[in-house]
């Protein structure tokens, strides 16, 4: 065989087998779609993972964090109601690198949200952030996340106030931590406080999922506030005139409204005979607690028919 012939043979073998290798690699990818989760399923011992990572625990933690985000994203996309592995994965990640604060911040968020937005396990979220605070006591943002979960998901205003206050004492904490603590202590400040928190989350996060969630929360808060105010007006009208207003025109006539009250989708609110106010297309607004037709539950997740906010 001459040199040229050998080169041609080698080139042919290279092309064919490279194609074969790529194809089988692709098949393997298909076959083992959940492969990276095996470790978490089977090796739930951080000690073992630490040993196997040969001292590169920081790197191992980064890899597990990536896997966690990927797992969460995948489950979220398929609108899963259960996130069984989220907790062990987060535990493993934070055991490997207790200083990986993103894991506590986002992890607590993933855990606390109600399914299918998250694992619906606020207790686990609180435990995770507390673990993070124990490992990083000088990171005031972790106290903020703790307060957030306590308030928003567990409705425990006292615990939330304690968390914000503890965080506000950490050197370098932004002043609004004190404001948050005060707001928590003060009853009735609910909507404002919530708005403050969600705005802050929206502004401080780069994650599109979290930003989107915050936007819906803010919209819901605005609706809740609108409905509360409109219902107050209806009640005031009844006090003065002996009956509830029949339409918005009458309320506008009192000088309390400048125009037709509309929800964020520009649809007018519906005024009911008993002075209640309803949101017409309430399905489009997840998380709202007021303005729901009688007997309807609040929608706890973002759905297809959800209102797409105009930025």
């Amino acid at each position: 065989m001459t040199g040229g012939a050998i080169s041609r043979w080698a080139m042919t073998a290279l092309l064919l087998s490279a194609a074969g290798a790529a194809y089988t690699s692709y098949r393997l990818e298909r076959m083992r779609s959940g492969a990276t989760l095996d470790d978490v399923l089977l090796v739930q011992s951080p000690k073992m993972v630490k040993a196997a990572s040969l001292g590169y625990t920081g790197l191992a933690a980064d890899i597990y964090w990536t896997r966690t985000v990927q797992y969460f994203g995948g489950k979220h996309r398929e609108k899963a109601m259960r996130y069984e592995l989220l907790r062990p994965m987060l535990a493993l990640t934070t055991d490997l690198d207790p200083q990986l604060t993103v894991a506590y911040e986002f992890g607590s968020f993933f855990l606390a949200q109600k399914p299918p937005e998250g694992a619906g396990d606020p207790q686990a979220a609180v435990d995770l952030v507390k673990k993070g605070i124990a490992a990083n006591p000088r990171n005031w943002r972790l106290y903020y996340h703790l307060g957030f979960v306590e308030y928003e998901e567990r409705k425990d205003v006292i615990a939330a106030a304690d968390a914000f206050e503890a965080g506000s004492r950490v050197p370098g904490a932004l002043p609004w931590m004190k404001v948050m603590a005060a707001a928590m202590r003060q009853k009735g400040g609910e909507i404002d406080t919530a708005r403050y928190m969600w705005t802050n989350i929206y502004e401080s996060s780069d994650d599109p999922l979290i930003k989107q969630n915050a936007v819906y929360r803010l919209i819901a808060l605005r609706i809740d506030e609108d409905v509360l105010n409109l219902e107050k007006m209806a009640a005031e009208y009844q006090k003065r005139n002996g009956s509830y207003p029949a339409n918005w025109q009458q309320v506008i006539g009192m000088g309390w409204l400048k125009g037709m009250p509309v929800d964020p989708s520009k649809t007018p609110y519906r005024l009911m005979a008993d002075g209640r106010v309803e949101v017409q297309e309430y399905q489009r607004f997840p998380f709202i607690t007021r303005g729901l037709p009688a007997g309807k539950q609040s929608i706890e997740r973002i759905t297809e028919e959800s209102f797409k906010p105009q930025q």
């Binding site: 080698a10 080139m11 073998a13 290279l14 087998s17 490279a18 074969g20 290798a21 089988t24 690699s25 098949r27 393997l28």
Partner: peptide
């Protein structure tokens, strides 16, 4: 996969 890969590398 392993055999294809090894042959490709050797080629």
């Amino acid at each position: 996969n392993a055999l294809f890969y090894a042959v490709a590398a050797l080629a």
